[in-house]
Nucleic acid binder design. Structure first.
Lengths: 327, 327
DNA sequence: ATAGGCATTGTAAACGTTTACGTAACGTGC
DNA sequence: GCACGTTACGTAAACGTTTACAATGCCTAT
């Protein structure tokens, strides 16, 4: 049987209270002599604390729940990495709960599971909540934070890139390189997609361009492959891809169709993961700092100082060509 | 305050024992009438069970701990996905603990944390344990299983590809395409690397080839980029890359050096993730079934039937050229 | 009528901690 | 020598469940 503080108490001739105080470092409440004695006995017995019991009496688990879509995006590892490290620094464990694929039922279930465990915070990565979930979360009084999704309000905690600004920056970049017929590929119809569309349209409008070319998708490689054909008749000279995978799909489809990138078609990708370095040509990208997004969301949910928007960075590689104005 | 079974009991005029029985579906121990009454009250009060309390009294958490290296390999999401789904089917949650980067201290800490939580099983993904950890795990009497690592013995549970056979198959594939000067790039010096080297050497020896060309690395893109230069003087016509990322590194370095793939150099990658489809040319790969590796490791650790080795598959794409014998 | 069995419920202990409160011993200052 | 403070420790309740065991009432067979 696993030894408990009771065993240590018996063995060292003190009460369990004293053992508990020593083992949980309540300094100033015990003598050095007893400390040494108890520590020695604990070690000899191979004692290991029972977190469950601690959590029960403290009514809080030192654990952050991360709810995430089952379809693993290529950046989720970076987010998880950031969350894990920062959580670890704050003495928190991380429990990951999958929410299926935009499956409302599973999503709800994941939140309930997190609540049942009395976690210290809930992180929702790339999840668009429905009204019921939002109510459930609010009423639970457990702090929660959306990760890589901004609901357009500051009433709810979230950490992400500023999607609107990000799309505007990318559009401006292409405009500055002389492109005027610019497409936007693979965005969805939820918050993230809408914000990017807004930024894209705003940047174009600022230069007097009303005409926009938006093709919806699901951020996947397949999505990019399929979408290329839809852009061809529209004579765009550049496309902004909503994700690295979409960009890779567009790129490969273009190459198969005999369209040279960047000579005949420029491509900028939003995300900037390793994927961009691997393709030929390497993809110029508006790179998001997913590690920071993860790390700061932990700060957010634990009540530490953190920004809502994490800075992005334009990384130039080989998929964009400058065109002469009016060319 | 969150309602407990005590509140429900008071509200519906029964004892907490009855409430517990109804809520945990101990069918046959309560009447339909009481069940209906209790369920109604529970719902009205917004009752949610306290998993911590349940775990304490049951002395087991319905949770599997997954210990994983901090460096996220590009296949870890697939493994995690497999683990998560199968665990969910078996009614288990998943708690992920990062073990740093081959950091013995953190690795040890992660195991201790898992033990403190009284998890129902421990999964160690892509982790090579030291002797102390192995002892700790064995003495804990918590079932544990290595994932994507085979320690070369059946005394310890593990689920992975058969690395030796996998390397032999890949080598045979290149031999069958007429290659005789075949390199092996990016393997490590631990179990996985050694097993692959053994398979590679065995396959070559079977055809009377004693000369081998092995370059060690760490499975990364950078590793692949650097290694190419070391192969050039050796006049190999084909290289087996220890991972997709190594293959991508080799490929891009080759393209920069003006070496055409597959015309002047053939490449086969071990792993077969999405990366292989994205590069130009697409990489022929010995594809591992990481999802299954994850899923079966859960079965393993939960005492269900599962195989140690998960089948692999040769997927032909565009990075291998046939050469005429003696050419 | 009575014993026995069954269905249903209650009582209370247990799980392994933390911690409020009480207390004993031992100065210390007067 | 006494009040008082401090240090070190013990007692016991509490956290929210599960479950062994006991108890009750009712039904049935004799």
């Amino acid at each position: 049987m696993k030894p408990t503080i009771k065993d240590i108490a018996a063995e060292s001739g003190v009460s369990i209270a004293t053992v508990s105080r020593v083992l949980s470092h309540k300094t100033g409440t015990y003598s050095e002599k007893t400390q040494a004695k108890i520590l020695a006995v604990a070690k000899r017995l191979g004692y290991r604390k029972n977190s469950t019991a601690v959590e029960l009496v403290k009514k809080k688990a030192a654990v952050i729940a991360l709810i995430i879509n089952a379809t693993p995006t290529n950046f989720s590892t970076q987010i998880i990495d950031g969350i894990q490290r920062r959580a670890s620094e704050l003495g928190q464990g991380v429990i990951i709960l999958y929410a299926g694929n935009r499956n409302a039922e599973l999503q709800h279930q994941a939140i309930v599971t997190a609540l049942e465990r009395a976690v210290s915070g809930i992180l929702l990565a790339a999840i668009e909540p429905d009204a019921e979930d939002l109510t459930l979360l609010k009423e639970s009084h457990v702090p929660f934070c959306f990760v890589s999704v901004y609901l357009g309000t500051d009433k709810v905690l979230s950490v992400s890139s500023d999607n609107e600004k990000l799309a505007a920056t990318t559009t401006d970049y292409l405009l500055d390189h002389g492109h005027t017929r610019i497409g936007l590929a693979g965005v969805d119809t939820y918050h993230t997609g809408s914000q990017r569309i807004a930024g894209y349209q705003r940047a174009l409008a600022a230069r007097g361009i009303q005409e926009t070319t938006i093709k919806y998708g699901d951020y996947s490689y397949e999505s990019g492959r399929q979408l290329l054909a839809e852009f061809l008749p529209l004579k765009v000279t550049a496309i902004i891809a909503a994700s690295d995978m979409v960009a890779a799909g567009l790129l490969n489809a273009a190459q198969e169709a005999g369209i040279a990138v960047p000579e005949q078609l420029s491509l900028v990708s939003i995300d900037g993961t390793d994927i961009c370095r691997i393709t030929t040509p390497a993809l110029t990208s508006l790179t998001q700092d997913f590690y920071q997004i993860g790390a700061q969301s932990v700060d957010r949910v634990m009540g530490e100082k953190a920004a809502t928007f994490v800075p992005v960075e334009m990384v130039e590689r080989d998929s964009v060509k400058s065109v002469s104005r009016g060319g």
